[in-house]
Nucleic acid binder design. Structure first.
Lengths: 197, 197
DNA sequence: CATTTTACGATGCGGGTGCATTGTAATCGC
DNA sequence: GCGATTACAATGCACCCGCATCGTAAAATG
């Protein structure tokens, strides 16, 4: 075996370049040549690490998901279900430059999932996990007496998730400020929880 | 002046073809040639009625918005604020083939608005109108004693809108059935309103 | 009837696309 | 040292893109 290189590191290098382009100019602007240029490598190298453009796009998304997932996991030591839910949701919203960038990319992939089957499959698999997680927290809060017992954790979780997703675009195009977004989330949590802890 | 033709009818013919392609294969699949073929006309004719592709895309969107707007207006004679809000929101969700198609197109345009300024402008203008409408209904319901007086109509309207928007993708990729979607909306309205009328 | 204006249809151009092919330098096992 | 394998770089190909250009048929106007 020749020329020892870190295969995964190269793939991440390329995927990062792709995500920068997607954030800046949209998924439409992502081409093999553009990605190669952004990463500062040759087009041949991009092709060497990804057989097709679709594979590259999928890998970049898993890369992005992993990045976000780590941050959410970092909030898991929150002192209460409410604090954790708040942190987890705000992590998905475009409140600063980093998350704004991620939201732009995420929205592009979301739209693409409508016509790209493998992408839809991935989201279909991820959704129950995320919503289930929210539901679990709400259920835990109910047992702690922090949420009314007669609320449906499953549906409340769906509403929480969909509200967050729906907030993305109004925030991105500037209709809602970061403060508006945070206030809306807190307002909703105030209605869901009995205590502010 | 020669050859009497209905200018607007031709533009609608072309825009309808564009929307069919966008619904079927996404906005990426929309090209002058493809639109011309779908409409059964020559590419020269498409160019005759739209100077640029962007103008064509924008016109098609206003066409779509008008179509949806008419349906929402048709629900305005609902017997109560709650009934109207329910109808207006369900009108935006992919509960049948027609609205499923519209949702697919709408999501594609929504994602595009992140990188297309004129599109973002259009949405930025439309948002206050839609949300304001919801807020008005909630305020009216408060005066009728059908909604708790200490709720914020503006924020409740934002949550209502964002929840609806967030429901679109899970519904489109099949994570939520049409029944799930309707049940989620009704659940949320049950929490918002004091009466089920 | 002539002129002008509109409504197209056909074609071409420069540029970008994903992907295949080819060549080559480097490093391993032997 | 040597064949084999890996890691690229360079180039080419067939196709598609938006848009401009050119030609022409038809109808209203004088």
């Amino acid at each position: 075996m020749p020329k020892i290189v870190d295969h995964e590191a190269r793939r991440r290098l390329i995927a990062d370049a792709l995500l920068r382009i997607a954030s800046r100019d949209g998924l439409d602007a992502v081409s093999l040549r553009e990605v190669a240029a952004e990463a500062g490598v040759s087009m041949g190298m991009v092709q060497h690490y990804f057989a097709t453009k679709d594979q590259m796009l999928m890998f970049a998304l898993t890369q992005l998901n992993a990045r976000i997932g780590e941050r959410v996991a970092g909030a898991m030591d929150a002192p209460s279900p409410r604090a954790f839910l708040r942190a987890a949701i705000l992590e998905l919203l475009p409140l600063d430059d980093e998350r704004r960038s991620e939201s732009r990319i995420g929205l592009a992939y979301l739209a693409r999932s409508v016509v790209a089957d493998e992408l839809a499959d991935l989201l279909r698999q991820a959704l129950p996990y995320v919503i289930g997680f929210y539901a679990e927290q709400i259920r835990a809060a109910q047992e702690l007496g922090q949420v009314h017992a007669d609320l449906d954790p499953r549906i409340e979780a769906v509403i929480l998730y969909t509200m967050a997703q729906g907030l993305v675009n109004p925030a991105l195009i500037g209709h809602l400020s970061p403060e508006d977004v945070a206030a809306t989330v807190d307002y909703h949590l105030d209605r869901l929880f009995l205590t502010s802890g």
